Amino acid sequence: MNKLRLTLLGLGALVLHTAAYADHTRYDDRRWWRDCWEGERKEEFRDGPCRVKLESKHDEFKREIKCKDGRGAWWRGEWKDEFRDGRCRVKQDVKHDEFKEEVKCD
């Protein structure tokens, strides 16, 4: 009986870990804009306590995530960063409760 409990406990921890990891990486992929190449698109939705806005035009993409008081934010810290990803220039402006990312491609 104890062996069964330990096995079930281990499986439960594995399932929870996998679900938490999948949720964390949902917006963490730096190439999220690759799905938006065609046409124009605007999308707004809530993800838990956070509000997400996605906008795309030809070769321009913007993503903004706002989490009230930082609750539900998957990023930690504050930073500004600019880098190239292939033919695209990426700018990030991050605060404790707001994540902004802008992508412009040549």
Rank of each mutant, 00 (worst) to 15 (best):
F83T: 10
D106N: 11
M1S: 13
F61M: 14
E98M: 09
F45E: 08
D59V: 04
K53T: 10
K95Y: 04
K66M: 06
R41Y: 07
K3H: 11
D23A: 10
R71S: 10
D23L: 04
G39L: 06
R89K: 10
K104E: 14
L16G: 04
R5L: 12
K57D: 07
V15D: 05
R89L: 06
K3L: 11
C67L: 09
R63W: 03
R87L: 04
D81C: 03
W33N: 02
E60Q: 14
I65S: 02
H96E: 14
L11G: 06
V15G: 07
K53D: 03
L16N: 02
K53L: 04
R76H: 09
R71A: 12
F45R: 15
L14C: 10
E55S: 07
G72I: 00
T7F: 10
H58A: 12
H58D: 06
G12H: 09
R30H: 04
R34Q: 13
R51A: 06
L6K: 15
G48T: 11
A19L: 15
E43V: 13
D69I: 03
R71L: 14
K104T: 15
K3F: 10
G72C: 03
K66F: 06
C36N: 11
K53E: 10
P49G: 01
R31D: 07
D28S: 11
M1I: 10
A19K: 13
E60P: 00
G12D: 07
F83K: 15
K104G: 08
A22I: 14
L8A: 11
L4I: 15
K62E: 09
L16S: 11
I65T: 03
H58Q: 13
K57F: 10
C88H: 09
E44L: 07
E82Y: 02
W32E: 05
V103D: 08
Q92C: 02
C105E: 05
H17K: 13
R87F: 02
Y27K: 02
Y27P: 01
A22Y: 13
D28Y: 04
Y21C: 02
E44N: 11
S56A: 14
G48P: 05
D23E: 14
F83Y: 15
P49M: 06
R31E: 08
K66Q: 12
W79M: 14
W33Y: 15
R5Y: 09
K66W: 08
L14H: 03
